[in-house]
């Protein structure tokens, strides 16, 4: 099939007028990371994040400290009659949580039988009310998509104005791209039957977001 590669590139080459400057221009273009048009908004970013999240049928609450997480989650689960069993992302922060005895927690990737998962967002985007999750050893992707209920913790200081802020964060971290970067905006939905929106197509039926107000100690 390398022949096809050669053929395709030779057709493309014929079609475009080649000059040597181009390679330079492209390198410059790629390294400039120039942002395009950004929709302007004036609200405070946390406020905006909350209102956008609510507009896409997710629920959201804030807690002061990580020590409040167990209570908040237990309350949420009781409220929706969810069995108090959690599969959580093995993140540094979540592993430190002291869970109340009613909740059983396992730290691992998701499997078919898991009803509720707990994840930790890499960032939040106020423009659209999106959570950003990056796959990695502390953040298995299946947790975001397999369960009926997904609870996601986001630190308040990780809410940013635009999607583009994610790109700067990733570059600043200096690591290679994670396998999967998920922008998650509300629970799973479909409108494939008569244009009627129905939540819980293949991914989570419910998405609950918990904003953690204090930055946890390092």
């Amino acid at each position: 099939m390398t022949n096809s590669r050669r053929e395709i590139f030779s057709r493309l080459q014929q079609a475009s007028s080649k000059t040597e400057q181009k390679t330079v221009t492209i390198k410059e273009y790629l390294s400039a990371h120039k942002r395009g048009v950004l929709p302007v908004y004036s609200e405070n970013i946390v406020k905006r994040f909350i209102s956008k999240v609510e507009s896409v049928a997710a629920t959201i609450e804030s807690i002061k400290n990580i020590t409040d997480l167990s209570t908040a989650i237990y309350k949420y689960m009781s409220c929706y009659n969810i069995e108090p069993k959690l599969v959580a992302a093995p993140s540094e922060l979540l592993k430190q949580v002291k869970w109340q005895k009613e909740i059983t927690v396992e730290y691992r990737a998701a499997d078919a039988k898991d009803i509720t998962t707990l994840t930790m967002a890499y960032a939040g985007i106020a423009e659209t009310g999106s959570l950003v999750l990056c796959s990695g050893k502390e953040s298995p992707t299946t947790l975001n998509f397999m369960p009926d209920n997904n609870i996601c913790v986001i630190q308040k200081n990780k809410i940013y104005p635009y999607m583009e802020d994610t790109w700067d964060l990733l570059r600043k971290a200096g690591e290679t791209m994670p396998r999967s970067i998920n922008f998650i905006t509300g629970p799973s939905r479909t409108a494939d039957i008569e244009q009627t929106i129905q939540l819980g197509a293949h991914g989570p039926r419910r998405l609950h977001i918990i904003i953690l107000e204090s930055s946890p100690p390092r």
Partner: peptide, 24 residues
């Protein structure tokens, strides 16, 4: 397309799972 600001899921894939990844 659908009048959404962004779809529920927008995903960027970069290669296969890394050595330390738990899934993928």
């Amino acid at each position: 397309a659908t009048g959404q600001e962004i779809t529920s899921y927008t995903t960027f894939f970069n290669g296969p799972k890394r050595n330390t990844d738990l899934d993928g």
